[in-house]
Design a protein around this nucleic acid. Structure first.
Lengths: 227, 227
DNA sequence: CCGCTTTTGTTCTCTAATCGTTCCATTCAT
DNA sequence: ATGAATGGAACGATTAGAGAACAAAAGCGG
């Protein structure tokens, strides 16, 4: 895979990086390889780069980085046992996912905005891993307010909702109340009434007649971003 | 990868972050490098950022963050055993998936499992919307336990972690304690001590000496699945 | 909440030294 | 000889240091 000189240079670079953390300059490499011109180093670097052993920023001073070492070459400063043969310790480029475990779902704006959801159909969409969703049709909402914090749902979170007209007791649903207000709540039935339960001690459960509440979907997943 | 000055500055930043938790200002860095103008510092910072060693918020005071350290450079707080093999010193490149705004990140198992994270490198991976991540290298962990429930992080959630060696006060980090136990906690500095704060009234904050705690990353996002 | 001051970060211009790139002549080994 | 490796030197780009003016945040007092 490598010529003697290339191997020697690679070893030198790695050693320097390891000892000082500073890449050698072409001049220094020239010295180390006992060459009399930098042009040779330039070619060797090119070869090493082409073969994927090093990476670099062109035209930048001392901007070398060792990507992998040939078999037998010790690398790294870790004095601890080296578990993996160097080879596999540098998984190279990550293979792009075959877009099939990802799903684009529409983003419908904020919930608890006092507006029925369907109203604000934006064309924004969000890509989410399919693993978070099940079968069925989904959409996303941004959670507004703190009424569900005790369920670990915070202001600003993105709720992934599976469309549904019904839900079982205790599930978290998007409920449209009197055609006006969409909220995310625990759904519970109590006798002839529907009870929407927030998960926050400072809010009270709300009771409605069945015809006042329309289930628009149930919570299937949650995304949060920490800035 | 680095020139001498860049290396020196990086070491200084890392040390300061490690000791005080506060990034140095340009003025302080100027002094530390024995310069007479801040413009040089500015250029060095730019170079370090370009090379991925630090991250920063432009126009924000003292908003530096060390992403990785060069080989051979001792990373401040870990005088403790370093278990992680080479991996972390040579991060692989994360490639945004074809046109989509989705990224594959490695899944490293459960946290709070009593084992350093790097140790249980599976090759599992998770696709997450890029919108949830920022720049940098990320990985995912499954949250185990209820120590962070008051922060809306529940048992079974997937935490998306951005690799980093430092964090600011109040951030949620993956902390490796004494090289043994990895936990997700609020990081706070109290005098000469590191305080790891759970978000659960039934748990007590824990105090450690700086060298006992190694920050392995900070919380960047969260995924949850409702069955 | 407004305006003021201080701190901190950004940009620009010069100058000098270091560093990387390129092209071409030369040498070496088969 | 002939292809590959080497040497040499000119050239251009980056890095670095200094100084100053400017812009943007943060803190403060009213």
């Amino acid at each position: 895979m490598l010529t003697a000189k290339q191997h020697e240079l690679l070893l030198f670079i790695n050693q320097r990086l390891d000892e000082t953390g500073i890449s050698p300059s072409f001049e220094e490499m020239k010295e180390a390889l006992d060459l009399k011109s930098k042009s040779g180093v330039h070619r060797l670097i090119g070869a090493l780069e082409e073969r994927g052993f090093i990476r670099r920023l062109v035209n930048r001073a001392r901007a070398l980085e060792v990507m992998k070492m040939p078999e037998g070459g010790n690398m790294g400063s870790n004095n601890v046992a080296r578990f993996a043969p160097v080879k596999e310790s540098k998984p190279q480029i990550q293979i792009p996912v075959a877009a099939n475990d990802v799903m684009e779902i529409p983003f419908h704006g904020k919930i608890a905005a006092g507006v029925p959801i369907e109203a604000l159909e934006g064309q924004n969409s969000l890509s989410v891993p399919m693993a978070l969703l099940g079968a069925g049709e989904h959409y996303a909402l941004e959670v507004s307010g703190d009424s569900m914090i005790e369920a670990g749902i915070l202001d600003g979170d993105y709720a992934l909702i599976r469309k549904a007209n019904t839900a079982r007791d205790g599930e978290i649903v998007v409920a449209l109340v009197r055609g006006e207000e969409a909220t995310l709540k625990y759904l519970r039935r109590e006798g002839q009434q529907i009870r929407l339960d927030p998960a926050n001690g400072s809010y009270e459960p709300q009771y409605y007649a069945p015809h006042e509440v329309e289930v628009q979907g149930k919570l299937a997943g949650l995304l949060r971003r920490y800035h």
